[in-house]
Design a protein around this nucleic acid. Sequence first.
DNA 1: TCAAAATGATAGTAATACTATTATATTTGC
DNA 2: GCAAATATAATAGTATTACTATCATTTTGA
Lengths: 227, 227
Amino acid sequence: MDNLLANLKIKVSDGLFQIDPFTSKLGKSIIFHSVEMITELGFEKSTFKKLGESIGSPEASIYRYFKSKNQLLCYLISWYWGWMECRLMLEIANISCPNVRLEKSIALVLSNANENIFIEDVEMNKLHQIIISESIKTYLNKDVDTSNKEGAFLNYKQFVERVSKIINEINPKYKYPQMLLTTIFEGAHLQVFFGEHLPRLTNKQNTPDYITKFYINLALQSINSSI
Amino acid sequence: MDNLLANLKIKVSDGLFQIDPFTSKLGKSIIFHSVEMITELGFEKSTFKKLGESIGSPEASIYRYFKSKNQLLCYLISWYWGWMECRLMLEIANISCPNVRLEKSIALVLSNANENIFIEDVEMNKLHQIIISESIKTYLNKDVDTSNKEGAFLNYKQFVERVSKIINEINPKYKYPQMLLTTIFEGAHLQVFFGEHLPRLTNKQNTPDYITKFYINLALQSINSSI
DNA sequence: TCAAAATGATAGTAATACTATTATATTTGC
DNA sequence: GCAAATATAATAGTATTACTATCATTTTGA
């Protein structure tokens, strides 16, 4: 599957960069090293200066690609969800049963922990870690409406939209597909984090897929029991 | 109820302050004005300098109470959950049916939007807004284990713990009470935010309590259908 | 009332998040 | 293959942030 996606250009809103990073060597290097840096240091402690040092380019060059650290984070996260949408399409293609398609969609959101796929040299595992710990910071701030207009959340919205259509196939009268899905996706990411750092806020199990199973059950119960 | 709680000192771990702010006028002023400031500017744009200006005290004086902006945020959030635990105890006292107690617990987490209670001059409405937009930032970072040791999340954990006991009264075999509850509490806060800023990620309704109802249903279905 | 503690006033530092300028490569269109 | 356009490097500079330090002054409580 990596090969299939290797030929695919993931679309990201052009409000999320100054120069498309995948059009140059330096741009690609910024993406690669920023994923490494943010995974290692976290978003708050990451700086363009440090990034410049690991790339071997001056800070100022990075600013030509991304106007701020925030824009870079928005780019990475949007790129991730663009990729996830591609994976989703492949994952659920030719599966007729909507329940199975929904289960596969939910499982997909947590799947990156178990695999190790590289896209454009980026270890998607690490990007997944960034999604878990940092993605919420792109919208939980006072600039959310501006970021939204720049298209920061389009790919995520589309992903949610696609899965919510599956829910409405299962139960056309279900009124809260988006609400259910964002609860599940954000919740799933959070439970991974709690499992590692705040175990009293979750119920960690030995099986690797307990979170996936929990949320699949939660979804199906809610969707089917609704009037 | 305000009166009852007015006589109550909310306990916050002593790792979350340098000097207990409620022991002095300046300390109380820091709490009051920081809630105003963070509500208005958001956490990222808030600074101790600005806070000092609105209090009429130098920055350095604030540092005697809180060693950092982060510690102050942790304090506020812990204080909020300490208060919520008090409210919870009052809310569910003398109610024998655990289902009703659970429903009231979930409703409580979203209740602050509709009321306007003042504790120690702090508009708890505004603190609730801070919980929605900022609380996640206290743990989704690389210093989470240190903050955890300082007791930053104790009050939240206790709140979750109390409600999870209600779940186990309803169904003693239910294996994921903490997971379900943090999914619901964090999810509920997020849906409020999405309703205001990213409507495509939720399913906003005209009724004021649609989020509460959604999560109460979700909880009861999951708890009761579980083996 | 006197000592201790808290606060104010002021200064200073390293780092951050940028912007600006000019020189040097590199690419590209012809 | 070469000039023009473009991208990058090198360097400098700014306002702000997140603190720390010092010392004078005020408040307080035994």
